[in-house]
Every structure is written in C-alpha cells, then in structure tokens.
Design a protein around this nucleic acid. Structure first.
Lengths: 229, 229
DNA sequence: AAACAGTACATTGTCGACAATTGCAATCGG
DNA sequence: CCGATTGCAATTGTCGACAATGTACTGTTT
C-alpha cells in the first residue's frame, strides 16, 4: 500500500515513535478492540518499554483521534458510531472537495497521469472482483488527489488526522460496501475534470461522490443494525 | 472573550494542562517570539515544573500546530509565512463554508437570535471605531456559526486545531486589516441566509466572505513586505 | 588557510520511583 | 435489606537521574 509510506515522511527513530506506529496499526487493524480502556502498566510491560515512552505514544495517538483521554481517569480507544461516521463524511465532503479543486489547478502532468493509472488499476480489480484491493485502490485514489492539492496543511489535516479515522471505520465495516462500480464511474468523472483542469467541476464531482458514499453507508448501516456503541 | 471559554470545555486539572494553556496564551499573544527554539530545561525551571510535565505540554502544543518537533533536536515555535496563511484561508473556506451550511440547518432559533445579536455588537463597535474589539467580535461570529453546525468533529478541528493558528497570525498582523465595514456587510448576508434556513446560500456567502478576506490579506501583505521568515 | 577529526558540553530521550487521585469493597448504620 | 462512609488497592500524574544523541570548539593535518 503506497498509501501509508508517503503519509508519515520520517521513519521512526525514537522508541516512542516506533511504539506509536505499532499501536496505531494495532488499533486500525482491530487487534485492540474499539472502546477498550488502555492500561498503562499493562501495555508498557507488554511492549517492553517504560511508561513514560508509552504515555508519549498515547499522546500522539490522541492527535490522530484514535484514543481519548480524561485526566486522572485514563485513555481508551475510540468507539464507533453511525453519527460519528456521518460527521466524518461531511468533513471529507468539504475538505476533499477543496482538495480536488486545488488538485485540478496544481497537479503536474505526471501526477495526473499517475492518477489515471490508479483508476486503471481500479477497473482491472473490479473486473477481477478483488474486493480488498479495491479498498486500497480507493484510498490511493483519494490520497493522490489530496496530495495533488499541494496545500501542505490540508494534506496533513486529511492524511494524518482524518484518514486514520476513515481507515478505522473502513476496517470494521469491510466488505459491507459493494459500491465499487458506481465509485469507479464517479472517480472517472473526477479524473476527467482534473485532466481538463476544471477545478470547479472537480470539486462538485468530488463532493457528489463523497455524499453518495455517505448515503450508501448510512443505508447499509441502517439495514444491519448490529452496531454496538 | 466568550470565544475561548466554550472552546476548551474542561478546566485544567493537571499541571501539564495548566502549563499547556499558559504556554499557548504566551505563544498566541507573542510573549514567546515566533520561530524561537524551546529549551526544555530553561522553560521547565522558568515555570517551576518538571521536564516531564513540560514535555507533555509541548506535545499538546504540537497538536494545536503551534510548535513543531524534530526527534533528538527539539521543539520550536512555528514561524509565519504568507503562503502558510493562504493555505489556512483555503482550508477555512472549505470547512467554514460547510459549517455555515450545517448551521443554517441545525441552529436553534435562540442560537440564530444570539448570532444576530453578535452582529449588532459588530455594528456598534464599527461606529465607535473600536478596532480590537472588532477582531474579537469577528472571532465570536465565526465561532458561533461553527458551533451551530452541531458537527462535533468539525467543531473540534476548526476551534482547536485551526483557530489557534488564525489567532496566531491575527495577533501578529493586527490593525493592519481594516476591512470591518465590508466584513460586516458580508456577515449580515450570511446571518440573513441562516435566518432563512438557506444552507446552500449560507455556504456560498461564507466561502465568498473568507475568500475576500484572503485576497485582502494577500494584497495587504504584498504592499508591506517586512515579513521576516 | 581550510578542512577534517576528536573531544567536551549541552540537550533530548528513557527509565524507575514517589505522590496524588480515582474506583472498588467491605463494613457500619439505618 | 439497602444505603452511605471509610479504608484499601490500583491507576495515573509528577519528578529527578541516567543514557543516547546532537553540537560546538579545538587541535591537527594537508
């Protein structure tokens, strides 16, 4: 997944950083269940590090919005709720819409070509019905456009803060969403707009795309109500 | 300033939290100059706390985007540059536009009335030519709309992460921006749209307003080029 | 004189121990 | 039998000391 490599630019040099990446992966991939309370002594001994380093790592996880802390009480992994997911979609609609507009203005020709290539990969894997890879390709697609905006702060806010949450939810709802053909079609329109350097259209199409994803997710979640808080 | 009170809901109970708020205020109000490197032993003894607590506070400052850290090298206060400011305006355009749309849909009648009252305060202080209060009122205005969106994550991202930066820049460029009358007019249109519950129009107007502020800031900064990195 | 190497200093990262606060449980009183 | 209160255990917050890394200075070499 080329997705993650470019996100965190610096490789972890300090113990707390390595621990942070380990824990983040563990949370995103569900090894640590959602909503679980973090016991500092327990985790510290489990990973063989000091409590101080662990606390520093937890602080970084808090920035990624993957854990919440209350003073004198402790830290716990975030839970997932439908309303939270809808909130995230709304924010993505606004920010990725802007990202698409900026990408249409600022992407280099080579970057646009790479984007078109990602889309091609998407089509191939739809025909082969590779469901997991489709999700990775989807992330790569959105990630490439975000990077194409060239707005460093927008990139950081989306890739570091928000997309960890997206992956968190996506993992726990995986294979429930079978909207790939429709998504591919919408992606195709977006890339075309970017190729024409039509920022206004790219933003409109991206917002439409994310809103459609949100509506689909809401309908899917309502039809299978085994969501625990 | 009612602005800050509602932002950080919990009062600081732990030492690191108090230290964090102290340092944040010191940075935002320019007591600590922009770009300055933070010496952990120095600051720790200056505030009479341990280095551990200070490091925790610095971690929180990093989340607010007010300091940047490099491993084994240290932390420094962020610098300010025109391009960074333009990036922030772009993000605000997207997110606050969405906030205005949601506010038009979700604000209670009482909240709308309060918003109209803030606008009235704005008008009074323009006529009295109270320049500082105008900036506070402006923050209150935008903050109220953001809160009116009822999207908790959007509120957190804007009020905690982005608006610290806004205040950081605003303090250092204060009284250079004399756009109050125009801003008041635009604010007025936005409130009217919200009162009519016209989300689409509220978003359009808010985006226009922020874009106009950005253009004005850019022009002002270009005409007085004493911006040090 | 400029550049490199080595050493000494300062700063950051890491750790284990102590203090303060919270949550639970058992006991006491109604 | 139920509720409140007090005491205990566990967890978090805080601190000072040690180790590792980066930095500046000096002395030597080309």
């Amino acid at each position: 997944m080329a997705f993650l490599a470019a996100c965190k630019l610096q490789e972890p040099v300090t113990i707390a950083d390595k621990l942070f990446l380990d824990l983040r992966r563990a949370i995103l991939e569900g090894e640590i269940p959602a909503g679980k309370k973090i016991s500092e002594p327990e985790l510290a001994s489990a990973y063989g590090v000091s409590r101080g380093s662990l606390r520093e790592a937890i602080g970084k996880l808090e920035n990624c919005n993957l854990v919440t802390r209350k003073p004198n009480i402790g830290a716990r992994i975030i839970g997932f709720s439908t309303s939270q997911l809808m909130e995230i979609y709304q924010i993505r609609e606004a920010m990725e819409g802007m990202a698409a507009r900026l990408a249409a203005e600022h992407m280099t020709e080579e970057e646009v070509a790479r984007l078109r290539h990602i889309l091609e990969r998407h089509r191939v894997e739809i025909e082969a019905k590779q469901e997991y890879s489709q999700q990775d390709v989807d992330l790569d697609f959105h990630f490439s456009i975000i990077q194409g905006s060239k707005n460093m702060r927008l990139i950081r806010m989306l890739c570091q803060d928000l997309y960890d949450l997206v992956r968190f939810y996506r993992f726990r709802l995986k294979s429930g969403f079978n909207r790939s053909e429709q998504a591919y079609h919408e992606h195709n329109l977006i890339v075309s707009a970017i190729e024409r350097r039509d920022g206004e259209m790219a933003e409109t199409l991206m917002r439409h795309h994310i809103r459609a994803s949100r509506d689909y997710a809401r309908k899917t979640l309502e039809s299978m109500p085994q969501t625990e808080a």
